[in-house]
């Protein structure tokens, strides 16, 4: 078995149809409205996908192990705000400190989530809905009516939010690096493989001696750090933060994962797939506009497409499972 085969089998799995769908949307819309497929148009889509994409990439890690984190929206906003506030309050603070603040805030929320879920055995859906409220409330209290505006944002973040390299926005480069590193971590480390095993069959995972609680805890903590990075990206992206930053994005993050082929039942999917899902979600939104679909229809169509994507994924999964069974029967 060659490495090339390994790679191609890995890609063949679930990300491929999403990429095809993405290409189809871009090409058809681009034919109708050429600016859509122009480099500016694509760059705009990539920028808009970055924060959700990075969050989806780290969320995929949790969904793969049958967990979920709905608190990411609140945490992302909180990080963005606190980093800005910190930089504004201590003018000339080194950029590394800003980054440190962001990652630390994300990590704290992740550790709290992880502890409650992994070591107290509480269901992640409930814990993270609760944390969604708690973090948002604390955030809102800290922020009050204060806004973080462009001049308060650390310069490197502003640069991050506006610059690009070879036409690819820095923001998306960050999301891509994040998604690729999660994908590689999950694919090439024993730690990552354990997450797939846990999500695929939690009881069997215990039986083969995988430390499920520890893996869960670390995954949430790691996801917290990624959320911190997403908060930095959010701040760089808009050069602005206030008490409503990041409000309600958690559902888009989950949607991106689902569209990107991360099975909500666990065990299947990649972070890169989740990022592609985020890009596809954003592309559809832009495409609907570029095709002249009324603003009022856009959300409805996006929702319908999301339902379709879930249905399609399931139908494909059932089909391929059936095909495998049939092949086995023929062999036997």
């Amino acid at each position: 078995m060659t490495g090339r085969n390994v790679a191609s089998t890995a890609l063949k799995a679930r990300e491929f149809p999403i990429l095809v769908a993405l290409a189809a949307v871009v090409v058809t819309t681009g034919l109708v409205n050429p600016t859509f497929a122009s480099s500016e148009g694509i760059s705009a889509i990539l920028i808009e996908s970055s924060v959700i994409g990075l969050l989806a990439a780290s969320q995929s890690m949790l969904i793969i192990m049958r967990q979920i984190d709905l608190s990411v929206g609140s945490t992302t906003g909180l990080v963005a705000f606190l980093v800005g506030q910190n930089a504004a309050a201590n003018i000339g603070v080194p950029f590394a400190v800003s980054v440190g603040v962001g990652l630390a805030v994300g990590l704290v929320v992740g550790v709290v989530n992880g502890f409650l879920i992994a070591y107290l055995g509480l269901p992640s859906l409930v814990v993270t809905i609760a944390m969604l409220y708690v973090v948002r409330g604390v955030f809102s209290h800290l922020a009050g009516g204060e806004t973080i505006t462009a001049e308060q944002v650390p310069a490197p973040l502003v640069e991050l939010g506006s610059g690009s390299i070879f036409g690819v926005p820095y923001l998306f480069v960050c999301a891509l690096i994040g998604a690729i590193s999660v994908t590689l971590l999950l694919r090439y480390s024993r730690w990552g493989r354990d997450l797939y095993a846990i999500g695929s069959n939690p009881e069997a995972a215990l039986r083969v001696g995988i430390p499920v609680a520890r893996r869960t805890f670390v995954a949430f903590a790691l996801s917290g750090i990624f959320t911190g990075v997403a908060g930095l990206l959010l701040l760089g992206r808009f050069s602005f933060a206030d008490a409503t930053s990041g409000l309600g994005i958690e559902l888009y993050v989950i949607a991106a994962c689902v569209i990107g082929g991360v099975a909500i039942a666990g065990g299947v999917g990649t972070a890169v797939g989740a990022l592609i899902g985020a890009v596809l979600l954003q592309t559809i939104t832009f495409a609907l506009g570029a095709l002249g679909v009324s603003q009022f229809w856009q959300q409805a169509v996006a929702g319908a497409l999301l339902v379709l994507a879930i249905t399609f994924d399931r139908v494909v999964a059932v089909r391929s499972a059936r095909r495998v069974v049939r092949r086995v029967e023929v062999l036997a």
Partner: peptide
């Protein structure tokens, strides 16, 4: 009145009407 969404809408305007 959401900074994120407003920025996205700005980009949408420029994409649709260059």
């Amino acid at each position: 009145d959401d900074a994120t969404k407003s920025a996205q809408q700005y980009n949408q305007i420029l994409t649709e009407h260059p």
